[in-house]
Design a protein around this nucleic acid. Structure first.
Lengths: 388, 388
DNA sequence: ATGAAAGCGCTAACAA
DNA sequence: TTGTTAGCGCTTTCAT
């Protein structure tokens, strides 16, 4: 009684079912009158094409997988929403995979998505063993784009931030407040991004010739441990520095929380700066200084890169009539909307190493209250000057 | 060169492909030795069953759709994570659909998911015209569970909160602080839940014989307008009450923000209470009083309900050996973890009206700082006594 | 225990 | 313009 098929429609319309198929898919070669009649009948019967059957013959599911570590960290919903929106605009659905920072889950999701025959995957890897991930992915022959962070040295496309620069900006800023000790909090074993942030932090310290003994670096596995606990432990151990750079905003908020719990005032007794610029950071109540990531842009670019892989632009797409040089990058203006991304007709694999597919976004320091020693009106300067 | 099929495996293993199918699916009727050999070869070839093809014959995609209004409101990621986790445990994938409170999008997602032949849908409807939604859904013959809010009078299963009680609790609490004017902020046209919260608010006011002229109710379409703006407008118009009940936490945080912008102190000059208890509410920096929703439980129950619809418990599931009466509910314990809600073996459609499928969770008042007039130690009493 | 064959709903040659 | 037919990769009778 349920689920009409193309045959039901064909029977009702007194045509062959290939005609129905043509009509439904807006293919040429059907008399306009016939098409209308078929479509009418299809509607009346509430006919719905059978996606999986289509996928079987088209070898295309119009679905992409999105693998992220933690949807409850506000950074990722921002990313996810943008990607979802873009995907929808290009007729793709999104399969959401939340790993909870579990590498095993991550791999099993990849396997799952492969079986489901998604057309591509966008992944914000949670694993440190990223090179290994890259190898896992290499064996499935699927367009993949890294977002947020990428395995070092991967040849795949990605959209990430300049984490070193970001870390550097944060540290510079804290040091500029004249603190005599400084700390970094983050689980560097979790991702290369975090490592990068630490590297930037160290570089800045070195540049300023900031003595190593005045630096505290907390690297422990933070999974399940919050900034709230970390700062309290530092306090307990009597080695809490005057300023803390936290690898992400949630961590930073936890730190502030924990510090206040112990009667410390932020920024008076402790300077704090985070990373990401989640929407909550800007609230006056927190007014958290942070290094902003352009999440929307990141999401948008990630999807565009994936789309370019999934639907390789044909020669016809570009207006330029001839190739200019055989091995020249050929001025690839990255993806207009869906179409646009012009490039050579080389195989997807061969394209990867090109710079246009490995995008590094610039971070932006956002100075709010938690990181500024003396409260001046100037402190809020950057507060509203946000990009997004 | 890619994507091995069952035939490749069959050829390599020198068996018919039906044997491979049996082996891969752990079906009986294959010699153990054969099975092992086949499995080995399959692994060596990196054979991956083709999901869509399977779906075509099995008439099951092992995918569910999750339709929510706004993934960037922290309430929904909490819900989504729980659902995703449960789904994963039961071998279901999640298709994420973010409507942005757009009813048209909502409907088109439903159509899309239907075409994709998902096995079921969990939807947190954004539409006010919920009855209409119910009718839309009625025409697709698919298990659907409402979560967070449900159309009034629907016969479908749902998991919601007792919004009236929640609204009532919030209002009672504010009134108990001895305020002389009080306000409600929320777009009641957005969902029945919000209406319910307003109703509860009004009931509480009436119960206390609180004069109507001392109540302010802001009902405008809030889409795109934040609490930040609303409170400032109230201030401008000189009709800002002493206490504000905001229909959700994000709204409440915006209100606090806006009030502070105007130099008001919360709670000294303005009491504020929210709804949802998003993770950020508990942060000392906000310390937002709110009415807590049990998001995890909501998500869990919603999935369990859906699962029960998708995989109707068979007679065999229950331990009771015989039917007691022909038309009696016949206490069949539904699917494993989804225990509890027992029901008869009638068709899914016939089951809906049963109370066990329409779950109303109790809200819990969480009193933090933003709603308490005089700062006593007592004020933080409930602060940590949270369920989740 | 294994194989042969039909068919899930659809698209795309190829014929007519 | 329309119909016929052959698969897409898989599961499942039904034979063997």
């Amino acid at each position: 009684m349920n689920a009409k098929t193309i045959k039901d429609v064909a029977k009702a319309a007194n045509v062959s079912y290939s005609t129905v198929s043509r009509a439904v898919n807006n293919r040429p070669g059907v008399k306009e009158a016939t098409r209308r009649r078929v479509l009418e009948i299809a509607a009346a019967l509430e006919y719905r094409p059978h996606g999986p059957a289509r996928s079987l013959v088209n070898r295309k599911t119009h679905t992409i997988g999105l693998i992220i570590p933690d949807i409850t960290n506000p950074f990722f919903p921002e990313l996810a929403r943008e990607i979802e929106e873009r995907a929808q605009a290009s007729e793709y659905s999104l399969m959401l995979c939340n790993t909870g920072w579990d590498e095993a889950k991550e791999r099993s999701f990849i396997a799952l998505l492969t079986e489901r025959r998604v057309d591509g995957i966008i992944i914000a890897p949670s694993a440190h063993s990223a090179e290994q991930l890259d190898r896992v992915l290499a064996r499935i022959n699927l367009p993949v784009v890294y977002v947020s962070h990428a395995p070092r040295g991967t040849r795949r496309p990605y959209v990430v931030m300049d984490d070193e620069l970001g870390g550097s900006l944060a540290a510079e800023h804290l040091l500029a407040q004249g603190v005599r000790s400084i700390g970094f909090i983050g689980a560097t074993d979790e991702s290369v991004s975090i490592e990068g942030r630490l590297t930037g932090f160290r570089q800045a310290c070195n540049r300023r010739r900031f003595p190593a003994e005045c630096r505290v670096v907390v690297l422990e596995k933070l999974r399940g441990i919050s900034g709230y606990e970390v700062v309290q432990r530092l306090l307990d151990e009597g080695r809490c520095p005057e300023a803390l750079f936290c690898e992400n905003d949630i961590l930073a908020l936890g730190v502030i929380e924990g510090a206040r719990e112990r009667g410390m005032r932020v920024p008076d007794d402790l300077l704090v700066i985070g990373f990401d610029d989640i929407p909550f950071a800007r609230f006056q109540s927190f007014s958290l200084s942070t290094v902003a990531q352009p999440k929307r842009e990141m999401g948008r670019l990630a999807f565009d890169l994936l789309l370019a892989e999934m639907e390789p632009p044909t020669e016809a797409d570009g207006p330029e009539p001839a190739r200019n040089g055989s091995d020249q990058p050929a001025a690839a203006a990255p993806a207009g909307r869906a179409q646009g991304a012009r490039e050579g007709a080389r195989s997807a694999a061969a394209r990867h190493p090109h710079a246009e597919h490995q995008i590094v976004l610039k971070p932006q320091l956002v100075t709010r209250r938690t990181s500024v020693k003396i409260e001046t009106t100037d402190a809020r300067r950057v507060n509203r000057a946000r990009t997004e």
